[in-house]
Design a protein around this nucleic acid. Structure first.
Lengths: 184, 184
DNA sequence: AGCCTATATATGTCAAGTCTTATATACGCG
DNA sequence: CGCGTATATAAGACTTGACATATATAGGCT
C-alpha cells in the first residue's frame, strides 16, 4: 500500500514513466524503501484505473513509447490524505537480531564472527552514506531539508549500530572469559 | 525463510507446540521479528515433512491435543548452518522515512505534526523497552547476554530516533522561518 | 563477434506473509 | 448471562513482493 503512495509522491514531484520511477526509487529512497520494477508498472496500472493518474504517450521511433504518467487532482488528494493520516505501528524486521538471539549455539568465537561481519557491512554503509551526504548542499527549502533528514537518519542509526556492536563485542569476550573461568 | 530458522531456533531451546511458539515470538522477539500464527503452523508442517522436526502428540481431554514439536539432529544441523551463513544485505523498510521524504507538501506545521506523532510513539516504545530491561538480571551466560543485547539494540536505536527527531524538529522550524523571510 | 548496459514496457509464476474463519472448552469480569 | 480471553490447531482467501522472462534497439567494452 505504501508503494502506491510513494509512486504518487514521486509523480507529484514530476511526471514520470515507470522506468523513471524505478530510477527514482533506486536513486533517492533506496536506503529505506525498495520497489520492484514489475510492481511499479502494476501499481501504475491501478492508479490509472482509479483515476489518480493519467497517461501521456510519447512515441519513440527506436524504443518502446514512453508512457509518461501525470498525477491528477484526485491523486494529489489521495497523496495528501496519506501524508496526513495517523502513523501505523510498523513491524520491524531485523534478521541480524533474530540470528543473534539464537547465536549462543555458535559459541563466543562464532558470535564474534557474526558481529564483525555485521560491523564490516555497517562500516561500508556508513562510508557510502557520508559520501553522499558530503555532496549535498545546504537545503534551501523544506522539501530538501526533509530529504536530507532521511539521509541523516540512516547515518545516525548506522553509527548507533556500530557503537552497539563495539560494546557487544566487548561483552561477549568478557562473558566468555567469565564462563570459562566458572568451568574450572 | 527466516521464520523457518527462527522456529528451529526456538525448538532448539525447548520443544514447543505451535501455540507455544506464537507466545515465544510475541514475548521475546516481537520488537524485531513478528510471526503470524497461521504461518507458524504451516512452517511446522514443512519442518516435519523435511525431517527437521518430530511431533509428539499429547492428548488432552477437554482441549485440542498438544502437538509438541521436537527438533531433530538434522534440524539442529540446519539451524547451525543458518547461524553461520554469510549475512545477506536485508532491505530496510521505514514507512515513516518514506512519508517524511514526500511530506514537504504538508507545510512546516504538518511536518511538525508528523514528527511529534513519531516522537510520541518512540517515547512510548522507549519506556516499554527500558521497563523490560530493568527487570533483566545480569546475564550469566552467552545466550542470555545475546538476548539482552537485542533488547539494548532496540533501546539505543529508539533513543537515536528520538535525538534525530528533536534535531529535525528544530531544523524544520528554522527552515520554515527562513523560507518565510525570503518570501517577504 | 559476443556480451553487458541503457532505454522502455509487460506478463507469468512463485513464495511469504496477513487476515479471517472454524472448532471446542473453560474461566473470569461486569 | 454474555463477552472477552486463554488454550490449541487448521484451512481458506487474499495481498505483496521477488524473480524470471519476453520484446526491441543502440552503444560501448573486451
Amino acid at each position: 500500500m505504501s508503494l502506491r503512495n510513494a509512486v504518487l509522491g514521486f509523480l507529484a514531484l514530476t511526471p514520470s514513466t515507470g522506468y523513471d520511477l524505478k530510477s527514482h526509487f533506486d536513486g533517492s529512497v533506496r536506503q529505506f524503501w525498495t520497489a520492484d520494477q514489475a510492481q511499479i508498472y502494476r501499481v501504475l496500472g491501478q492508479l490509472v484505473q482509479d483515476g489518480l493518474v493519467t497517461v501521456e504517450v510519447i512515441p519513440q521511433p527506436d524504443r518502446p513509447d514512453r508512457k509518461v504518467h501525470h498525477i491528477t487532482a484526485a491523486g494529489l488528494a489521495e497523496l495528501d490524505g496519506w501524508l496526513a493520516s495517523p502513523l501505523d505501528a510498523h513491524t520491524v524486521r531485523e534478521p541480524f537480531l533474530l540470528r543473534l538471539f539464537f547465536a549462543g549455539r555458535l559459541g563466543a568465537a562464532g558470535v564474534i564472527g557474526l558481529i564483525d561481519a555485521r560491523a564490516a557491512a555497517a562500516e561500508g554503509q556508513l562510508a557510502a552514506l557520508t559520501a553522499v551526504r558530503a555532496q549535498q548542499p545546504n537545503p534551501a527549502d523544506l522539501e530538501r531539508a526533509l530529504r536530507l533528514a532521511t539521509l541523516d537518519n540512516g547515518i545516525r542509526h548506522t553509527q548507533t549500530e556500530l557503537d552497539w556492536l563495539r560494546d557487544l563485542r566487548g561483552t561477549v569476550t568478557t562473558t566468555n572469559t567469565t564462563s570459562k573461568e566458572q568451568e574450572r
